[in-house]
């Protein structure tokens, strides 16, 4: 199973850079990211990286509030309508998700959609039942 790296981040100057600096020093490559804002002055930064365990350890050591969250990675075509085709299948499989990341893989003209869901096992089962293929970790992290 694949993981995304979730980080508690205050909406203040320099706080994001503090995170990216730790990743730079640890030579972690970010494949994709999503950041949300809230009215409370903080948000959650979600990262897809080449080595989530190493990223978690390095950030955690620096006292940063970080968590690894299980995600489901799905493949789609890198072309107009590719995401819509995939989301239709996900909806038909009756799977809801809280947040998503996406990235393209140029070599294969494909793209990856990474979903964070409430009930991981049940969602996997529903997607499997519809014949939707779930990607392996290393492909998600861009290491293959």
């Amino acid at each position: 199973m694949a993981y995304e790296v979730s980080i508690f981040l205050e909406n203040k100057i320099g706080h994001f850079e503090r995170i990216t600096n730790v990743l730079k020093e640890t030579k972690i490559n970010i494949r994709s990211m999503a950041i949300n804002d809230t009215v409370n002055g903080w948000g959650i930064l979600n990262l897809l990286v080449d080595d989530p365990d190493k990223a978690y350890e390095a950030l955690s050591e620096k006292g940063i509030s970080v968590a690894l969250r299980k995600v489901i990675a799905l493949e789609m075509k890198d072309e107009a309508g590719g995401l819509d085709d995939l989301l239709l299948q996900v909806a038909q499989a009756d799977v809801n998700f809280n947040n998503a990341l996406g990235r393209t893989i140029q070599e294969t003209q494909t793209a990856i959609l990474v979903l964070n869901v409430d009930d991981y096992e049940e969602s996997i089962a529903k997607l499997n039942a519809k014949g939707i293929k779930i990607l392996e970790d290393q492909k998600v992290y861009g290491n293959q």
Binding site: S6, I7, F8, N36, T38, W42, G43, I44, N46, S60, G63, I64, S65, V66, A67, R69, N98
Partner: peptide, 11 residues
């Protein structure tokens, strides 16, 4: 730190 699970609704 140890309580953070990445969930915005929980926060």
């Amino acid at each position: 730190k140890e309580w953070f699970k990445g969930d915005i609704r929980r926060l």
